[in-house]
């Protein structure tokens, strides 16, 4: 309970402090999210996926974003990756407001600055591992020799030096995800965005993928942002952001979550939130009771 109180206090205190010291912190943060809202319209219903997110991610940081499914973490993710545009608010990547970029600049950003890793790997099924890895280099305009040399080197780095010419269908899930990691690294990005990278993998293989990401983070200083459900994943992160109902509830170092599982921590947070809302509920209950009495008489 005490840890949550601290988390909330931190969160509450951080919000005004950051906005006053933006200039001072500018170069330290590679990603800054300010007041981002995203509203989807499904039929006639408006769905508020994000309700005003503020988040800073430091250069070289390993940030885990956690939350139950439907909490908006994937939406937040797509915003940071420039894959989707916010309804309101701004996302800065390296101090550039990505909403201001035209299609060509956005493509450059996706190609050079950001590497994407997906839960479902999203490799091109008809291409070999090597072709999948060299694809972003083609878009970056690299020569064929460069592509081959670097593609092979990257696949060796992820331990697939002997699987260059295998197609995704001939590789296991873990191997496919490693191809995806190599592909994400193709143009030396500053940020790697990994959306539940271990979600489709078994425990042991997932652990390998996490270790690989952590190693990359330490060795090359690439910023890693990952949405995850995985307990092992968040424990390796530098900081953990907890997203519920489209809002960031807390940004804490993983130690603060202690031995609590993700679900346990989320449940505790929710309990606290509910407790705070009980007074409202009680008032509401009184009103309902009165209403019921009136209706009963009528």
């Amino acid at each position: 309970m005490s840890s949550i109180a601290t988390a909330d206090a931190q969160n509450g205190a951080a919000a005004p402090a950051v906005s006053t010291s933006d200039d001072y912190r500018a170069s330290e943060h590679i990603v800054r999210v300010r007041g981002v809202k995203r509203v989807y319209k499904i039929g006639e219903v408006l769905v508020h996926a994000l309700r005003g997110i503020d988040l800073d991610i430091k250069r070289g940081e390993f940030m885990a974003i956690m939350g139950p499914s439907g909490s908006g973490k994937s939406t937040l993710f797509n915003m940071v990756g420039g894959l989707d545009k916010p309804t309101d608010g701004t996302v800065f990547i390296d101090e550039v407001d990505i909403a201001q970029l035209d299609a060509g600049e956005l493509a450059w950003l996706r190609c050079r600055k950001i590497g994407y890793i997906f839960q479902t790997f999203n490799l091109i099924p008809v291409m070999t591992a090597l072709e999948n890895v060299t694809l972003p280099m083609i878009f970056a305009g690299a020569s064929v020799d460069e592509q081959m040399e670097k593609g092979k080197r990257l696949l060796e780095t992820v331990g697939l030096g002997d699987r260059l010419y295998n197609k995704p269908g001939q590789l296991s899930g873990g191997q496919q995800q490693r191809v995806a990691i190599a592909r994400a690294l193709a143009n030396d990005p500053a940020i790697i965005l990994a959306d539940e990278p271990t979600g489709n993998l078994d425990q042991k293989v997932g652990e390998e993928i996490i270790q690989m990401l952590k190693r990359l983070n330490k060795e090359s200083g690439v910023t890693i942002i990952t949405a995850t459900h995985d307990d092992k994943m968040y424990k390796r992160a530098d900081r953990v952001s907890i997203v519920i109902d489209g809002e960031i509830q807390a940004v804490v170092p993983p130690e603060q979550l202690g031995d609590n599982t993700v679900d346990g921590f989320l449940a505790q947070l929710k309990e606290e939130k509910d407790a705070a809302a009980i007074k409202d509920l009680e008032t509401a209950a009184e009103v309902t009771a009165t209403n019921a009495a009136i209706t009963g008489e009528g």
């Binding site: 994407y116 999203n122 878009f139």
Partner: peptide, 8 residues
């Protein structure tokens, strides 16, 4: 996927 990887 192509667009994610930087295709115009």
């Amino acid at each position: 996927t192509f667009k994610c990887l930087g295709a115009l």
